[in-house]
Amino acid sequence: MFKRKDLLGLQDLTAAEITVLLDTAVPMKDVITRPIKKVPTLRGRTVVNLFYENSTRTRSSFELAAKYLSADSINISSSSSSVTKGESLYDTARTLQALGADVIILRHPMAGAPHLVARAVQCAVINAGDGAHEHPTQALLDLFTVRERRGTISGLRVVIVGDILHSRVARSDIWGFTKLGAEVRVCGPPTLIPSGLEEAGVEVYYHMEEALAGADVIIMLRVQQERQRQGMFPGLREYARLYGLNRERLALAGKDALVMHPGPLNRGVEISADVADGRHSVIEEQVTNGVAVRMALLYLLAGGGAQHEADN
């Protein structure tokens, strides 16, 4: 079972724990495909979305996940909160706990911020993305999507392409897919590949054609224009030429390869429009599945699991 207080990253989880989360998300997906998408499971629980970075996708996904489970949820964004008054993250977290939060979902631009909050409070803390560290629920929804389509993760060849250096999605995907037995390759320009990555059990490629050979899953990462200004690569044009996923490159992968992207897309940069909308793409399914895995996580962390056991 899943007996943790927090979900800070997939690095800490065992394969068995990840599998419990994915299994729990299966009935949750049933709930959100019903006409009336609501179950009373977390009635009376309070979920706080504490977002220090702009996010539409992840915040809405968590908010809806909480609502479908009948939890009360509130959103706090950095622009509207005490953050702008200079309150420390520690004090903000303690305040939210004192207000009665059962779960704090934290998105923060700095790696390790959820660890600080998790140490500060007794309630559950979910990492909704911290700097370049981890984005565990994104990886869970990626795993869920692949497992649903392919039946298994083990033995698959997964290729992550793009700015690995700054990507929390890449790190969480690396942990999730390797723990469940997939072979993970990363591909990008050397300036966007962090040092020592091989020690995490992945293969590093600089040339997309080599990396894509025989791929079962291709995860394209969003490239930030800001990185060009920082001198990490010469420009979007050359980047798209070297690392853009188009039809010709996709043909190098396995014939049933899944194309994934955490969004939002830079169409024509890291992914061509025809591939993003083509038959290999599961990008929209990822979004739907994101709600299901976040419901599963809230259920397991907010005491739903304990309640369930008591009912039995």
């Binding site: 790696a111 390790g112 911290d130 560290h133 981890e134 929390r168 962090p194 040092s195 020592g196």
Partner: peptide, 9 residues
Amino acid sequence: GCYSTLLGL
């Protein structure tokens, strides 16, 4: 090094 990569720092 490896740790900065894993920690995303």
